[in-house]
């Protein structure tokens, strides 16, 4: 169980919710694990919603790997981000992204592969291809933002090049099946 100094910011309601959540979710954690979580909360100042995600993911990763939440918190990548400079919201965002990579390794790898493929298409500033959130639904969103007919023609030509090169088909392949 963690004591009151854990929460250094936020309003009283959020602080109470965070303390309550931590008490409920860490009852069987070791002191060492609680200290490690306390540092995360103290440095990143997550909202109750973010903290619930964090606790869920820590439990899920530990269960999947037959390990302990403390071992996940000791991950070098997470520790490095915790010690990095920057605002608390920015560090929280990057730290949660790193935790998400551990929680969803195959999904994140597939997203990264697709993102790399999109970047490689060199579509320019006028055309943008967005992946569906968490790859759900399988639909790409293609956005064209142009200020002239010539710019539109150029953007379409670049898309056409990617289409003919098979990049778009490869992209849909990544959305299709693991």
């Amino acid at each position: 169980m963690l004591g009151p100094p854990l929460v250094s910011g936020g309003d009283a309601v959020a602080s109470a919710a965070i303390t309550e959540m931590i008490d409920a979710r860490t009852a069987d954690w070791s002191d060492h694990e609680c200290v490690a979580l306390g540092r995360v909360v103290d440095v990143l100042r997550p909202s109750p919603r973010h903290l619930r995600d964090i606790l869920d993911w820590l439990d899920d990763i530990a269960t999947r790997d037959a390990g302990r939440p403390g071992a996940v918190l000791a991950d070098p990548g997470l520790s490095r981000l915790l010690a990095a400079r920057g605002s608390a919201p920015d560090r929280l965002k990057r730290w949660k992204e790193a935790l998400r990579r551990l929680r969803y390794p195959r999904l994140v790898a597939r997203e990264a592969e697709a993102t790399t493929l999109i970047r490689g298409m060199a579509l320019g500033p006028a055309a943008r291809i967005q992946l569906p959130p968490a790859l759900e639904g399988g639909a790409l969103t293609v956005t064209l933002t142009v200020t002239s007919a010539d710019a539109l023609a150029q953007a379409l030509a670049r898309l056409d090049t990617s289409l003919r090169a098979g990049d778009i088909a490869r992209l849909f392949g990544l959305l299709d099946e693991l």
């Binding site: 439990d59 899920d60 269960t63 929680r103 999904l107 597939r110 959130p133 959305l175 299709d176 693991l178």
Partner: peptide, 28 residues
Amino acid sequence: FGPLPLLAGEQVPGLDGKWRDFQPLRVH
């Protein structure tokens, strides 16, 4: 039940708000 392997799969929210294995995995 506390943490369960059941919850530790790579599940994400779908269009109806329910969490399922992410689409390429479940299609597989």
